[in-house]
């Protein structure tokens, strides 16, 4: 039981580390601030989810200790990470940072009177 618990926890923590590394690579490779914010906030949220779930399982299965604090940490990371990404991108757009020129579509700039369609 202990060995299985340790193995499961280790798999989760390794997955979390891999996702964190990949999100760091994404921050370096992506072309503009908008896409970089995706990599920085989202993948790292998933990385935190995996690592903390692994720690939770380790304490739960190996030490028979249910740590509510780890679950709370996941909850708060998930509550704050998207707000950070939203505010960074909003500030970037308000101060006129251009999108990387692959795709010119920018509804927020073109559509100032908010006549947005019901999603095509």
């Amino acid at each position: 039981m202990t060995v299985i618990g340790e193995a499961v926890a280790a798999v989760f923590i390794i997955a979390g580390s891999l996702v964190s590394i990949l999100s760091a690579v994404g921050v370096l490779r992506f072309p503009d601030v908008y896409t970089r914010a995706h990599a920085a906030s989202k993948s790292s949220a998933l990385g935190v989810l995996f690592s903390l779930t692994g720690a939770f399982l380790y304490f739960g299965l190996v030490h028979n200790f249910i740590s509510i604090r780890l679950l709370l940490a996941i909850f708060f990371v998930f509550l704050t990470a998207p707000v950070g990404a939203h505010v960074v991108l909003r500030a970037a757009h308000h101060s006129g940072v251009e999108l990387a020129g692959i795709n010119p579509r920018d509804d927020l700039k073109d559509d100032t009177d908010c006549s947005c369609p019901a999603g095509d």
């Binding site: 999108l99 795709n103 010119p104 509804d107 700039k109």
Partner: peptide, 15 residues
């Protein structure tokens, strides 16, 4: 992230 050529096209749409 891992694709060698970054051939996606980010943009903003409204909903």
């Amino acid at each position: 992230v891992l694709s060698p050529r970054m051939d996606f096209s980010p943009g903003i749409f409204s909903l």
